[in-house]
């Protein structure tokens, strides 16, 4: 099963490489990885999506917790949560395709954020499934480039991942 694990990490040099190294060292898999500082400057928040059965996920969370730089973590998929990813897509936009891209973008509530005579750059946010669907819809028209941020997420309700 796919899991989204969010980690509060010491904002120290080398901390990220320890997390990433752990995954390759122990043969765990990383589907997406996303990391940025939090409102508390000494902490980064890192979100990783991974796939594995319960035994593997248990090992992943235990080994992550063992890293000295990992302050706290949560497996968001264990409860209700919000999952978002942002994607920028460059698509060919010539002739009739120009309208087609615009229409499809509207349906997906995506925005066209940059325009040239032949290319639209579309920005879209949503869960990974929505982004995949958009990529599929655009594929016949001609995707030129895709940049995805990787999944970020947060628990619903009062639950917090903080110090």
């Amino acid at each position: 099963m796919r899991h989204i694990i969010s980690i509060l990490l010491e904002n120290e040099p080398g901390a990220l490489s320890r997390v990433v190294g752990l995954f390759s060292q122990r043969n765990f898999n990383i589907e997406t990885l996303n990391v940025a500082p939090t409102e508390e400057p000494s902490l980064s928040r890192l979100t990783v999506t991974t796939v594995g059965d319960d035994r593997v996920i248990e090992q992943i969370t235990k080994h992550l917790n063992k890293l000295i730089d990992v302050v706290k973590l949560v497996d968001l998929t264990e409860g209700n949560h919000i999952e978002r990813e942002l994607m920028l897509v460059k698509v060919k936009a010539l002739g009739a395709a120009r309208d087609e891209v615009k229409r499809t973008a509207d349906i997906f509530r995506a925005q066209i954020v940059d325009v040239t005579p032949s290319v639209y750059t579309v920005q879209i946010t949503g869960d990974a499934g929505k982004l995949d669907a958009f990529v599929q819809a655009m594929a016949p028209i001609g995707i030129l480039e895709v940049a995805r941020t990787g999944v970020s997420g947060i628990a619903r309700g009062d639950k917090l991942l903080s110090l």
Binding site: R55, E58, Q59, K62, H63, N65, K66
Partner: peptide
């Protein structure tokens, strides 16, 4: 003492 050793 190491949780990751348990059920590994």
């Amino acid at each position: 003492i190491d949780p990751s050793s348990i059920s590994k």
